[in-house]
């Protein structure tokens, strides 16, 4: 697994892009300019990092950062919540495909089981992050509304200066404007 990280990441990337319409998937895989093709390239970078994280499995914060890079994008695309985080499970399939021979030849079932447990953990983290992203979207909607009528509220004397008073703190790093 350590030696094959790039191959795993690449297969995983392909599998994830295949959750988009085929004509889009191809384009996003081909264009390697990170500014004109942010989805394809952010996803690839984050998945590659995640494969590495999975092997090392030491820093939950870092793993969350990488997961968030992917989920953030999928959370605002036309996916149901399940489909948005399903990409994590695709990794199981990819690993079984890439290492099929090694697994059967060397009897690595227990290693695979351990790895898959990590992936299950990853999925749970992904779910938390997804919900966090959605919460942030809704808070942003409220914030935007308040910003728009900022002076009108002030004129009416109904300004609320700290949204935290009412709404609680914003998402992970979504500071109030």
């Amino acid at each position: 697994m350590k030696d094959n990280q790039a191959a795993v990441a690449d297969r995983w990337h392909t599998a994830v892009l295949d959750t988009y319409p085929p004509q889009t998937a191809k384009l996003w895989k081909q264009n390697t300019n990170r500014f004109t093709n942010p989805v394809g390239n952010s996803t690839l970078a984050a998945l590659t990092a995640l494969v590495g994280d999975l092997v090392v499995w030491d820093d939950a914060d870092r793993i969350c950062t990488h997961l968030e890079d992917v989920i953030k994008i999928r959370a605002v695309q036309d996916f149901t919540p399940g489909k948005a985080v399903s990409f994590v499970f695709l990794l199981k399939k990819v690993i079984r495909e890439v290492f099929a021979q090694d697994i059967s030849r060397h009897g690595l079932a227990s290693e695979v089981a351990a790895l898959e447990t990590r992936i299950d953990n990853l999925a749970l983290m992904a779910f938390d992050i997804y919900v966090g992203c959605r919460e942030r979207i809704y808070l942003m909607r409220i914030e935007e509304f308040k910003n728009r009528y900022h002076m009108v509220f002030r004129k009416a004397g109904i300004t609320c200066t700290d949204p935290g008073d009412i709404l609680g703190p914003l998402g992970p790093d979504g500071e109030s404007a």
């Binding site: 790039a6 081909q30 264009n31 390697t32 300019n33 004109t36 690839l44």
Partner: peptide, 17 residues
């Protein structure tokens, strides 16, 4: 056509097509 490095450090020409 700009040259970017891919994940393995190899050069990649963007926008070839």
């Amino acid at each position: 056509s700009e040259v970017y490095k891919n994940e393995n450090g190899g050069p990649v020409v963007a926008y070839a097509s």
